[in-house]
Design a protein around this nucleic acid. Structure first.
Lengths: 225, 225
DNA sequence: CAGGGCTCGTACGGATTCCGTGAGGACGGC
DNA sequence: GCCGTCCTCACGGAATCCGTACGAGCCCTG
């Protein structure tokens, strides 16, 4: 069970690290928002504890960024006790909110409750279709056992699709996630990358079976049951 | 969204009932532990709010009884603020713990967070009729297990109908939702798309059983119970 | 009971938008 | 300088939209 702590108070992080480690958790930590998001993408933690009021990227923004692709439970640990802060954090996608100072045994109980509920629904970190296997945790793609090389942009598109297997993904959702553009100005790159992904992953790129396009709406990755 | 409130304070129950109803929740209530368990078995609520310290059956025992067969999120609302009580309740199977007195907007936010996570795990928003299954979240339509391809406009019409299952949808409501036209100028597209939907989804398109038209009024999607 | 008016279902085809793909330039790291 | 990657542009082909037309069923009326 891997826990990511995003907090800029080194003393608190140190205390938590010792306590959590004593209870069997593996702990990783980041001192600011940007580092937290990057570390989460790299390590794929099972639970995330985030402080509001961090440097570089606010806690709320960290929550929103994580919720874009991760289903891991998020618990906010903050010095702010106002209900407005709690509502904002919970509605941004957090699962729980604990105010400082807190009792350590209560925090541990809340962690157990969260992981208990999330554990029932956690998805496998690999998806596969045909002879292609996508490992989301190690960021590798193999086809018939052979490693397939993808460019960073190709990987990000495929990852987004693989995190929503079987689901229709609209073009604007992809554009917003990959390029951050609010505008839906399709200048054509997406079509280009889909074409290249098909060339690398489909048996017959001219007649795709798994990387499907739904005309007028977006794309869909059809995976094995 | 149905909420069961198990609390022996009639004043609090009354206040909660009004507030929750105003936010679109359906509220049922039980004044003691035994009644709460019985009512939960009968009504199958989506969320349970339980007080510790109730007559006849303690809150902890209620949680354990519910967890025996129900996966519904449980939130404890209690006057006890000690961490020992929190730990006991959470480890018994509760998902969250709020101490009295509480801010009502915080409680609402926690309810939203709980139903969001529980909803993702359990029932996806799906409606079905005959051998046809409509998955609103993945925008997928299957018939006898086979995927059915719909054009964007066909999907939008079907989605609108599926979000109002069994009820009559007026033509102007559909026109306004799909084409954004305030005017009710029926130039015939709607009839056309309904025809195509029936061809794709009805066993006998000439004699529809589920995609019904109410002459002079609009359309109605009849779904399974 | 016959006729007319209205609403609805369905087939056909042009106009438009959307999509796949190839070629090639710009940019940055090594 | 070389190479990988990202992006622009252009064109052919496919999918989709939407206007029109025509026949069938229903209700009202005389």
């Amino acid at each position: 069970m891997k826990v990511l702590i995003a907090d800029d108070d080194p003393q608190l992080v140190r205390a938590l690290r010792i306590t959590l480690a004593a209870h069997g958790y593996e702990v990783i930590a980041a001192p600011d928002g940007v580092a937290a998001v990057a570390l989460a993408a790299k390590e794929n933690p099972d639970i995330v504890m985030v402080d509001l009021g961090m440097p570089r990227l606010d806690g709320i923004q960290v929550i929103e960024a994580l919720r874009g692709w991760s289903g891991a439970p998020i618990i906010v640990v903050s010095g702010r006790t106002g209900s407005a802060d709690k509502v904002e954090a919970l509605d941004a996608g957090a699962d729980d909110y604990v105010s400082k100072p807190f009792q350590i045994d209560e925090l541990l109980a809340r962690l157990r409750a969260l992981s208990r509920r999330a554990g029932a629904a956690s998805a496998a970190p690999v998806v596969s279709f045909g002879d292609v296997v996508i490992d989301l945790s190690t960021k590798t793609v193999t086809r018939g056992g052979e490693r397939v090389h993808l460019t960073p942009t190709e990987w990000r598109i495929l990852e987004f699709l693989a995190r929503n297997p079987g689901s229709l993904v609209t073009r604007q959702a992809l554009l917003k996630d990959i390029w951050g553009t609010e505008q839906v100005a399709d200048t054509g790159y997406l079509r280009l990358y889909m074409s290249q992904l098909r060339k690398k992953l489909e048996a017959d790129p001219g007649h795709p079976v798994h990387l499907l396009t739904e005309s007028g709406m977006g794309y869909r990755l059809v995976v094995d049951a």
